[in-house]
């Protein structure tokens, strides 16, 4: 039962990931793309790792995954911020989507 719930949560995470990739292909503007792409590494990654934790149950492995989750929550906004900021400083303009 626990494994099935874990797999369902991982599946939901993959769904978030699929929509993120769809968004990257759908929009042509850089800023729209990075906004959509940042969804992949927050929502999708969080959900997939939560699914892994539920699937494995309470063990040392799960604690390691929690550690990865915490590090990801700290580093991920920095990376998104740095990419966007460097694009902004390089003079990329925000264009309206067609």
């Amino acid at each position: 039962m626990q494994q099935i719930i874990g797999h369902i949560i991982i599946g939901i995470g993959l769904l978030f990931l699929a929509f993120g990739i769809l968004g990257i292909f759908r929009f042509s503007n850089f800023y729209a793309r990075i906004l959509v792409a940042s969804k992949i590494d927050t929502v999708a990654f969080l959900t997939i790792l939560a699914g892994v934790i539920v699937r494995q149950g309470w063990s040392a492995f799960s604690l390691r995954v929690v550690l990865i989750l915490v590090i990801m929550l700290l580093i991920n906004p920095l990376i998104t911020h740095i990419i966007t900021r460097s694009a902004y400083l390089s003079g990329y303009k925000v264009k309206k989507e067609d």
Binding site: K39, V43, L73, Y88
Partner: peptide
């Protein structure tokens, strides 16, 4: 606050 704004999908803090 800035990192939370960036973590929330749909908004990114630039400066």
């Amino acid at each position: 606050l800035a990192n939370s704004i960036t973590l929330t999908p749909g908004t990114v803090t630039i400066d």
